[in-house]
Design a protein around this nucleic acid. Structure first.
Length: 173
DNA sequence: ACGATGATGAAC
DNA sequence: TTCATCATCGTA
């Protein structure tokens, strides 16, 4: 089965759609000339500056402005002083959006994922469309609607009416 | 249930 | 400059 690296046009689409379609794709990380590739099993969508759960809710700040930028770049930030979270920027026409990669096969949780894949602040801004160190591949796996569970997002109780939105997508075997 | 641990954004 | 908060995780 041919492997296709996901292109700019894949990411430059509505955030919810990109989030859903990232399930079953493979996160690929090259470390010391060795490739690690694991299937993405859990994601969360952060949609625009109106989304009160998103870092974009304060408008473009030094940290979050990348969410308004080119789709397909990584948004990596430190959380709770000890973990990193990996997101990929989505949308076009300078609309804010990103998808948090919450889990891959065998690794649950965005913090552990970044630790395992050695993804830190240096990867903030990395262009996942062009990078030689981090990208996402379509390996031909087809995911049916019945395999996707929709759940509320984690750790965003403060987000008012946005906290119950089913913008977390989990792949169930 | 809670502490580790530091970046972030808001308020002053 | 200070302060509360936080898209987490491991231990309990």
């Amino acid at each position: 089965m041919k492997k296709y690296r996901l292109s700019r046009t894949f990411f430059a689409r509505p955030t919810l759609l990109v989030a859903k379609e990232l399930l079953g794709k493979f996160l690929v990380r090259k470390i010391d000339n060795k490739k690690v590739a694991v299937m993405i099993t859990e994601v969360e969508a952060y949609c625009g500056e109106r989304d009160l759960a998103s870092h974009a809710r304060f408008g473009p700040t030094p940290r979050s402005k990348i969410m308004w930028g080119l789709a397909g770049r990584a948004y990596v930030y430190m959380i709770y002083g000890m973990y990193f979270c990996l997101n990929v920027v989505t949308e076009k026409n300078r609309k804010a959006g990103a998808v948090l990669i919450r889990g891959v096969q065998g690794v649950n949780g965005p913090g552990k994922l970044c630790r395992k894949f050695k993804i830190d602040k240096k990867f903030n801004g990395e262009d996942v469309v062009k990078s030689k160190k981090l990208w996402i591949e379509d390996r031909g796996l087809k995911i049916g609607p019945g395999q996707i569970k929709r759940l509320p997002r984690v750790g965003i109780d403060y987000a008012g009416k946005y906290k119950d939105k089913l913008w977390r997508f989990v792949l169930s075997r």
